[in-house]
Design a protein around this nucleic acid. Structure first.
Length: 275
DNA sequence: ACCACAACCTGGCCGC
DNA sequence: TGCGGCCAGGTTGTGG
């Protein structure tokens, strides 16, 4: 589901709805949606709290509250928000809903029930182990080159590791490796300095493009709180395109499985050097 | 460090 | 139509 561009887009769309608003009531419709504290304590602590700010860290949406606590939301595979001005809606897959003091309903919808809400005193408790933000100044070509050099595993699963870099997911990793011309099964430690440089450029470029296009909406899974969709699915080069032609060289794109996840790539543009 | 695999869940699609 | 199998943008835990 959502990766960095989608989560960032959702946070931006929710900001004008939530910022400065007081939460009047909270209903938890699927108990496990609330990771901590208990659902009852969660509702009690949120009721009457005002939302000061809303932003993103990795794939977490985070809201600073007037109580001093922070509310974090991870959408996992199928979570999304809907905003209604005239009632709580009637979504089959609604898992949690909040009514704001002005009457607005913010409904969390999640068919697969994987998403989680965390209400904590210190957001670091949840986000402390995340790697750097790939669109921040902390993420430099030099940093990436030095870090991949220390790793033995395949580059693709490494890029999915949120402790390594925060926010990348299955779509944007496939896209970035294709753009950089690096085979997904390359051992991370064998990347040359120019390759690490190209990978850095590609990661930043695909994330920025995804963001500019409002994120990627496949099968209507990811939608904005207003119901609209992103447009970046129209710009994907390799993701979910096995059997189609590589947009760069025309060779047939392939799908392989790494770490139980699909990887899409071009076997000509992304050559695996013989070990 | 690294790997493999199961688990958490529901729904859509495809082939028979 | 029905049913089984596979797939899905993510993460965590367990056991090597």
């Amino acid at each position: 589901m959502p990766e960095l561009p989608e989560v960032e887009t959702i946070a931006r769309k929710l900001a004008p709805v939530l910022t400065g608003q007081t939460i009047a009531r909270v209903d938890v419709l699927w108990a496990r949606t609330v990771d901590r504290p208990t659902p009852d304590a969660f509702c009690a602590a949120l009721s009457g709290a005002r939302v000061l700010t809303i932003d993103r860290r990795g794939k977490y949406i985070q809201m600073a509250l007037s109580t001093g606590q922070t509310l974090l939301v991870h959408l996992r595979m199928s979570g999304k928000f809907a905003v209604y001005s005239d009632g709580p809606g009637e979504d089959t897959h609604a898992r949690l809903r909040m009514q704001l003091a002005d009457g607005t309903w913010v409904v969390y919808i999640d068919p697969r029930k994987f998403g989680r809400f965390y209400l904590v005193d210190d957001p670091h408790e949840i986000t402390g182990a995340l790697g750097p933000e790939p669109l921040s100044v902390d993420f430099t070509p030099e940093w990436l080159a030095a870090k991949v050099a220390q790793r033995r595993g395949e580059i693709k699963p490494l890029l999915l590791d949120q402790r390594f870099i925060a926010g990348l997911g299955n779509i944007y990793v496939s896209e970035a490796l294709w753009q950089a011309g690096i085979h997904p099964q390359r051992s991370a430690g064998t990347l040359t300095t120019p390759e690490a440089q190209r990978l850095h450029t590609a990661i930043v470029a695909v994330l920025r493009a995804g963001l500019e296009n409002g994120g990627t909406s496949l099968d209507g899974h990811y939608t904005y709180p207003s119901g609209g969709t992103g447009q970046h699915q129209d710009y994907l080069r390799v993701y979910d395109r096995a059997g189609e032609q590589c947009p760069r060289c025309g060779y047939t794109l392939e799908r392989i499985v790494q770490g139980q996840r699909s990887t899409y790539f071009c076997p000509v543009c992304q050559i695996q050097p013989t070990p």
